[in-house]
């Protein structure tokens, strides 16, 4: 489907519009002018409707927006992306909290972050894809902004697969390259992770002594200068994944750790207990709900990657540090 609408004619109706669910658009731009041509009218629509408007943008883009908004700038809430996009699962929880606080009110969002600068960038791409599912009840009108003069063609190709609409060349259109999130995520999950280095430290997890794995992780973390809350969170995450592997997987359960953009800890077993993909992303209502554990692991680490294959299940956790 390639239905097109001029960018200056909103695909959404005005302030009396019914809730339409999440509208997740990618704005592809090459310079400040193109950025403003897409982002500014979008924010202005929100301001004119009296709706909340957010700009989750790095300082440079925020300044460009502020200058152009002029006296309207205070109507936009500016958020530092390094706070908001701390980890994919935290960002999802943050979005859901915002959605809940807004109720039925539409939110007009301009967001910009360079995923390629994050380790495990694919987990942020996954976030972008799952975003299309997670907010069916929220009236988010989001413009995710990508600078085509900076980002690689590979990144732009992923952007095209994860945003149902594209604003490009001054037109907003339905995106024929958009892929269903379940299909897209299945594709990511069938891509093997790079092998763990042969130099990785490793130990066998004994079900009766989980303390031993925390001693092991603490020592590996010390070598990467990871301490304090980041270390404690990692210990909780590793303990949770190892407990799951002991309960639901098959021995041997092995813990490996190696330094790479912080510390990576990988728990492998020979079973197939892969957690339900979307459970691990959506904040559970309470600890009583299934998925609380694996969701918690995502909240406690920078990234979580799970792969199940013929050899068993591997869960890889990365902690960048404090």
């Amino acid at each position: 489907m390639t239905a097109e609408a001029p960018a200056d004619q909103p695909m959404e109706a005005g302030r009396t519009s019914a809730r339409q669910g999440v509208q997740h658009c990618a704005l592809l731009y090459g310079d400040d002018q193109e950025f403003l041509a897409g982002a500014l009218p979008h924010l202005r629509k929100g301001i004119e409707a009296g709706d909340p408007a957010f700009a989750v943008t790095p300082r440079e883009e925020a300044e460009v927006l502020r200058d152009s908004l002029g006296s309207d700038a205070p109507a936009v809430q500016f958020i530092d992306p390094s706070d908001f996009y701390s980890t994919p699962v935290r960002a999802m929880a943050g979005m859901m909290a915002v959605a809940r606080s807004l109720g039925t009110r539409p939110a007009w969002v301009v967001a910009s972050a360079d995923w390629s600068k994050y380790p495990d960038a694919m987990e942020w791409v996954r976030y972008d894809s799952i975003f299309n599912l997670g907010f069916a009840d929220a009236d988010f009108r989001g413009y995710c902004c990508y600078n085509t003069s900076v980002l690689s063609p590979e990144v732009i190709s992923l952007v095209r697969q994860t945003h149902p609409r594209i604003h490009e060349g001054a037109r907003l259109r339905e995106n024929p390259d958009y892929r269903d999130p379940y299909d897209f995520v299945a594709g990511v999950d069938s891509t093997p992770l790079p092998p763990s280095p042969s130099s990785a430290a490793s130990m066998e997890v004994r079900p009766t002594d989980l303390h031993a794995l925390r001693v092991f992780v603490t020592e590996q973390a010390r070598r990467c200068a990871i301490a304090g809350d980041a270390l404690y969170n990692l210990l909780v995450a590793v303990t949770e994944v190892a407990t799951n592997a002991v309960r639901h997987g098959h021995p041997p359960v092995t813990l490996r750790a190696w330094p790479d953009n912080g510390l990576v800890c990988e728990i492998t077993d020979s079973g197939h207990w892969q957690p339900e993909e979307f459970l691990s992303w959506v904040p559970p209502q309470s600890a009583l709900k299934s998925g609380f554990g694996i969701w918690g692991v995502g909240m406690l680490c920078d990234t979580v990657q799970v792969r199940t294959g013929p050899k068993g299940t591997a869960v890889r956790l990365r902690t960048c540090g404090n």
Binding site: R214, L235, V236, T239, E240, T243, A287, G293, G296
Partner: peptide, 9 residues
């Protein structure tokens, strides 16, 4: 000194 997510659950 340590509590796991399972204990909170």
């Amino acid at each position: 000194r340590f509590i796991d997510l399972g204990a909170l659950r």
